[in-house]
Design a protein around this nucleic acid. Structure first.
Length: 564
RNA sequence: GCCCUCGUAGUUUAAUGGAUAAAACAGGGCUCUUCUAAGGCCUUGAUGGGGGUUCGAUUCCCUCCGAGGGCACCA
């Protein structure tokens, strides 16, 4: 049993002995390490029920607890908190665990077993994220969805579930028609991703401003659905391929590998079939087919337009069925921006009526929008900032530093640092809030940042490597009085577990910075390879930090270079 | 108008209802002839207003103010 489990069991028993009927026993990690490794406010919580003062109850509880194996000290603090300090030997177990070699079976999980849990063992989870649209730019929102989705996928994997990554892309619809219109009018090359972006911008602008262009674009849209124009189909195929190929290059840099790709061209007919098969659910209204969300406390949305074309809502129903046919899972998570929450709620309400088994598995995770700190709305060139240009700019900034690093490959390091900078800024905060992206801050590559974590990891790697070279032993002495580092290391698996349960990568991010900071501070104070017998212990500790940062960064989807 | 998020140092973010509200950046001052200075050390500074629930509220409830998003043929 874990030390946490042991503590909870002992505490529950002690509370009962004190005559307290405790519904739940809460054990937390004190924010301040000086307050111990675990703590409970049970005495405060149940003082009223017990009819005595909190501190008096705390003393009774501590007396009833007796000795708990693995705990070296129990103290009462503040208003009546009971703080538990773990024995050095208990902490040493965690440190050794952190240093264990990866088990081959777990190697595919990046860092291996340290920090993993079995909370979702045997479960199958599909995570859909990124979702860029071919023919359009890969924008900041896609970068956000990608960073969050990848990290959630990995958290779920670290919880023992089998995960499949899915990417859903809009390869039909008005935006495609706009891009095709632009390609034709401007005579651009459909084989170039950059030209596609240009064509789309032109088409989108004309659609708003020119009624004739709008008519033409609508006609193209219909033709693409119907495949009624061979020439158009050829152009379409060329553009689609170029776009998808380009996205693939970005996924490679970002560290995502999708298992399934779904396309609107496939979900649209499927969705239409579903909607048409359920006239009792979807109603006719002003020539369109709608779902009246009011019956579920929501609002009405159009599923099939009066022109007979499926909307995104209908395609989403088709997607849900397509996913279920492709891979049967227990949970299907979709990551989108918060602006789609209202739309998604209506789709799920409709889904509950027409395919309840599938609807029951659906989970929607939303994130805020990325906005830019004032006065920094455009990139140097004056264009809108795309996800790609942001990456390019960050890589350029990182390259200057990388040139003076120890990296074998400057370009690779620069790219890794850039990915770390951007992903960190996305993952460091809780979901729901808009992300204010400050490019100056991100480009500085200092302080509370992805590169900070990478640097601490690389530094730990260097020390461990040097120790190996000098054939210095590496082992933990249980007699040593534990430092902040051991105590933080012990928390890692629990942090990963709660981060995974809440699907909140920022919990892990916050923890890793605390660990890296404690390590850097200790590094500044201590000479690790000091030629004394104590060096063995310090090397082991450094090794455990290295491994924890490595696994933690892996979960965040941030590369962990060994030299920089 | 209705619905969904969100208001914490100058700025960007932390804080499963708990302890002295934690960091980073920016500002000021130190620190590489010792293992990586993308580092370390010192220093100034905050819970939008008002009620309520609670032993205890940044956290939960109500209200006001403010920001962002959504609400029929876009995705």
């Amino acid at each position: 049993m874990s030390i946490r489990g042991t503590l909870t069991a002992h505490l529950a028993k002690a509370l009962t002995q004190c005559g307290v009927d405790a519904a739940d026993v809460v054990i937390e990690h004190p924010a301040q390490l000086s307050n111990g490794d675990y703590a409970t406010g049970a005495a405060l919580q149940y003082a009223k029920q017990a009819g005595i003062a909190p501190r008096a109850l705390a003393e009774k509880i501590v007396a009833a607890l007796g000795t708990v194996e693995g705990v070296s000290k129990v103290e009462i603090a503040g208003a009546g908190f009971i703080n538990f300090h773990l024995a050095p030997a208990t902490l040493a177990v965690s440190v050794e665990e952190a240093r264990k070699e990866d088990m081959p079976a777990l190697r595919s999980l990046g860092g291996g077993g340290w920090g993993a849990n079995k909370n979702l063992a045997g479960k199958k989870v599909m995570v859909e994220y990124t979702d860029p649209n071919p023919f359009k730019e890969f924008h900041i929102g896609h970068l956000m969805s990608n960073a969050i989705g990848e990290s959630i996928s990995r958290l779920v994997q670290f919880s023992g579930a089998e995960v499949k990554r899915a990417n859903y892309q809009g390869d039909v619809g008005p935006h495609v028609a706009k891009a095709l219109w632009g390609l034709i009018k401007l005579g651009l090359d459909a084989g170039s991703a950059a030209m596609l972006g240009k064509a789309y911008m032109a088409g989108a602008k004309a659609y708003e401003e020119d009624p004739k262009a709008k008519e033409e674009i609508d006609a193209i849209n219909a033709k693409v659905y119907e495949h009624s124009d061979a020439q158009l189909d050829t152009l379409y195929a060329e553009g689609r391929e170029a776009s998808l190929k380009h996205f693939e290059e970005l996924y490679d840099v970002l560290g995502t590998k999708f298992d399934y790709y779904f396309f609107e061209s496939a979900t649209a007919p499927k969705g239409l079939e579903i909607v048409r098969a359920h006239p009792e659910v979807f109603e006719q209204s002003d020539g369109a087919v709608v779902y009246k969300g009011e019956k579920a406390g929501l609002h009405t949305r159009v599923f099939i337009t009066s022109k007979g074309l499926p909307t995104y809502e209908t395609k989403e129903l088709g997607l849900a069925e397509l996913k279920a046919e492709t891979w049967e899972c227990d949970t299907s998570i979709t990551i989108t921006a918060h602006e789609q929450a209202g739309y998604f709620a209506v789709v799920v309400a409709a889904m509950k009526e027409v395919m309840p088994e599938i609807a029951a598995k659906v989970q929607h995770v939303t994130h805020g929008m990325m906005r830019f700190a004032e006065g920094k709305m455009s990139s140097r060139t004056g264009n809108v900032i795309t996800g790609e240009s942001l990456l390019t700019d960050l890589t350029e900034a990182a390259r200057e530093r990388a040139k003076e690093s120890r990296a074998d490959n400057v370009e690779t390091l620069a790219q890794n640092v850039a990915v770390a900078a951007i992903k960190y800024q996305i993952l460091k905060q809780g979901s729901g809030k808009d992300i204010i992206f400050d490019r100056e801050r991100a480009l500085s590559l200092e302080g509370d940042s992805g590169p900070y974590l990478q640097y601490a990891h690389a530094r730990a790697c260097a020390v461990v490597g040097k120790a190996k070279e000098q054939k210095i032993a590496s082992m933990i002495y249980h007699t040593d009085s534990p430092t902040e580092i051991e105590r933080l290391l012990h928390r890692f698996p629990e942090v990963v577990a709660s981060s995974a349960t809440l699907l909140e990568p920022h919990i892990l991010t916050t923890y890793l910075v605390a660990l890296a900071s404690a390590f850097n501070s200790w590094y500044g104070r201590e000479q690790i390879l000091d030629g004394t017998p104590a060096a063995a212990h310090k090397v082991a500790l450094t090794d455990a930090v290295r491994r924890t940062l490595k696994n933690g960064l892996w979960i965040l989807g941030i590369p962990a270079p060994e030299r920089m």
